[in-house]
Design a protein around this nucleic acid. Structure first.
Lengths: 184, 184
DNA sequence: AGAGAAGCGGGACGCTCGTCCCGGATTCTA
DNA sequence: TAGAATCCGGGACGAGCGTCCCGCTTCTCT
């Protein structure tokens, strides 16, 4: 089943992936497929052959990014400071999402059911955040009454900060507000 | 220009307004006009005659609600505790938005340019929040480095809390987290 | 180099949604 | 109560989008 792809097909596939990653990051998941095809200099048929559905296209892009994020979370979970680990991962997610509208939308659940796919692939970003939260609460760093849904909502809010992709200071400021509020 | 509306026309207009208010609150601004017409027991033409565009329809609904909110903000601004006034108004907005998806989307700027219309009508909810924030910072209750955009982003986050329309405790909890974080 | 397979382009199709329009029904007025 | 003004219903139309398909091109392998 692992048929070799023809050389031009490989090239086109890579072009589409690169363009789509860029476009999704900057403009969100709502960009039309036609537009991605146009910018990649290919026909729409080429896109939909490599990625039968739109969901498949950004799953290919976002799952890779989620893999990196879960790896980072696992490293943090192994560290010795549960509280700081949570704050650090939270900040990472916010920054990542602010610079990648597509990812932010996916994490916010605004898109298709990408969450299920990521869980299945073992790249469950939300799950790691939940784990780190539990550890931080266990250690007494974070208010014990906050729930995971609260944290997720706050994360979505931070990511929605206008100009968050350019104004790094603003992002750090809003993160510090949230983290201060979460502290026990 | 103030031509009297025919009796059946008045009835239909009121039905459409009532149904639309309900539907927008529960399901957000994305519901099709056809669906609103169907639930109101009316043709789509009837809706679009009374409200030439979709934006006009929910402007008619949301502006009234925004009017109440700005009035409340003005009352709070006249009180003697700038800090608490801000927190109270913030909480009001979050609760209101959590129980009214359409309003939350409008405040988040997700919809059309309703903000401009509300400013023109003197029901500038965002503006009032900005004013209360400035007063609270002046009085030293709130960190002086936070900006209005930060507050707005946090508000959007709180409103996006899943099940915020049913779980009032969760809403109060996340609000308390944010307010604690904002304190100087 | 030539045959056959693999891939490409972009138009076609189906769907959803907002807006417009017109023949017919309803209400108002004299 | 009859004529005229007003309003209603819902189908038509156009725009935007995702997906599929087919005639043609390009690559690969011998």
């Amino acid at each position: 089943m692992a048929r070799e792809l023809r050389a031009d097909a490989r090239r086109n596939r890579a072009r589409v992936l690169a363009v789509a990653a860029e476009v999704f990051a900057v403009e969100g998941l709502a960009v039309p497929i036609h537009e991605i095809a146009r910018r990649a200099g290919v026909g729409t048929g080429t896109v939909s052959r490599h990625f039968p559905t739109k969901e498949a296209l950004y799953a290919a892009i976002l799952l890779e990014r989620m893999e990196r994020l879960t790896a980072e979370a696992d490293a943090l979970a192994a560290s010795e400071e549960p509280g700081e680990s949570f704050f650090r991962f939270f900040a990472t997610l916010v920054h990542e999402g602010a610079n990648n509208r597509g990812l932010a939308e996916a994490l916010a659940g605004a898109g298709y059911d990408l969450d299920a796919a990521s869980v299945e692939a073992g790249h469950d970003v939300s799950g790691r955040l939940r784990t780190l939260l539990a550890m931080a609460q266990e250690s007494g760093t974070i208010r014990s009454d906050v729930e995971f849904a609260d944290v997720k909502a706050l994360m979505v809010g931070c990511q929605s900060h206008p100009g968050g992709s350019t104004d790094r200071a603003a992002l750090d400021r809003i993160i510090s507000v949230v983290c201060a509020g979460l502290r026990a």
